[in-house]
Amino acid sequence: MPSNQNDQKQQDISPEAREHFYDVLYGRRDVRGQFLTDPIPDTVLTNILHAAHHAPSVGLSQPWNFILIRDPKKRQQIYEAFVSANDEAALMFEGDRRNQYQALKLQGILDTPINVCITCDRKRGGPVVLGKTHQAEMDLYSTVCAVQNFWLAARAENVGVGWVSIIEKSTLSALLNLPDGVVPVAYLCVGYVSEFLKKPELELAHWEKRAQLNDMIFTDAWGETSA
């Protein structure tokens, strides 16, 4: 449940809470093929949305909105948009890589009790927003922080999330009646699962593997490494 603790009197994180946080963090998965149709209680969904809404945002602009998509007909339309985009995407790979791509399950649009689209209102906060004056894209990054909060809170509630990015943005915007200046950032399939895999599904499918952290760290400038 969201904490009622006074924001002015935050306490240090206990060792037990810290350990549980890392359990949630490293146990998060992009779920694709393990979804169940069991409904998510409103209290659980509210907890997850509450966590997402408490993400950091540039200038405290809170540029996000959450569109809850339950209507089967709407989700069927979105699924068809995915299929069209996925067919196009498959043609971008060649040979065995294309065959491997086509064998992957990359969405759960029709498999879950609810889909959630997290959007970014590029006009929120007015023409000048603290922190966006020199990096206008910071509102998009703020919205991605809300996505991450949503994902981690869902994992803490034992709810799975799958991010579907293989959809033409203009098509999705039209299907969701997004007004001018509001863009879709994340289309999420949300539901309980039969299991959370021990490793990312794409790693288990030998599509890609996790890079080593040491290879990602530079010192003072790009490409510079310390002893």
Rank of each mutant, 00 (worst) to 15 (best):
Gln5Glu: 15
Gln5Cys: 06
Gln5Gly: 04
Lys9Pro: 00
Lys9Phe: 09
Gln10His: 02
Gln10Ile: 15
Gln11Leu: 14
His20Phe: 07
Asp23Trp: 03
Val24Glu: 03
Arg28Pro: 03
Arg29His: 01
Gly33Thr: 06
Gly33Cys: 07
Thr37Asp: 15
Thr37Cys: 00
Asp38Asn: 11
Pro41Arg: 02
Asp42Phe: 09
Thr43Trp: 05
Asn47Gln: 12
Gly59Lys: 04
Leu60Trp: 08
Gln62Trp: 01
Pro63Glu: 08
Trp64Glu: 14
Asn65Ile: 03
Asp71Ser: 12
Pro72Thr: 08
Lys73Met: 11
Lys74Ile: 14
Arg75Cys: 08
Glu80Ser: 10
Ala81Gln: 05
Ala81Asp: 08
Val83Asp: 10
Ser84Lys: 14
Leu91Thr: 13
Phe93Ser: 09
Asn99Glu: 15
Gln102Arg: 14
Leu110Arg: 09
Thr112Asp: 10
Pro113Asp: 13
Pro113Glu: 12
Ile114Asn: 07
Asn115Ser: 12
Asn115Ala: 12
Val116Tyr: 09
Cys117Gly: 01
Thr119Leu: 09
Cys120Leu: 15
Asp121Asn: 14
Arg124Asn: 11
Gly126Trp: 04
Gly131Cys: 07
Met138Ala: 04
Asp139Pro: 02
Tyr141Thr: 06
Cys145Gly: 00
Ala146Met: 02
Val147Met: 05
Gln148Trp: 03
Phe150Arg: 08
Ala156Ser: 15
Asn158Tyr: 06
Val164Met: 07
Val164Lys: 03
Val164His: 02
Leu175Lys: 09
Leu178Arg: 00
Pro179Glu: 05
Pro179Gly: 01
Asp180Val: 12
Ala186Gly: 07
Val190Cys: 13
Tyr192Gly: 01
Tyr192Arg: 09
Leu202Asp: 12
Leu204Gly: 01
His206Phe: 08
Ile217Gly: 00
Ile217Asp: 13
Thr219Ser: 12
Ala221Gln: 11
Gly223Phe: 12
Glu224Leu: 12
Ser226Arg: 11
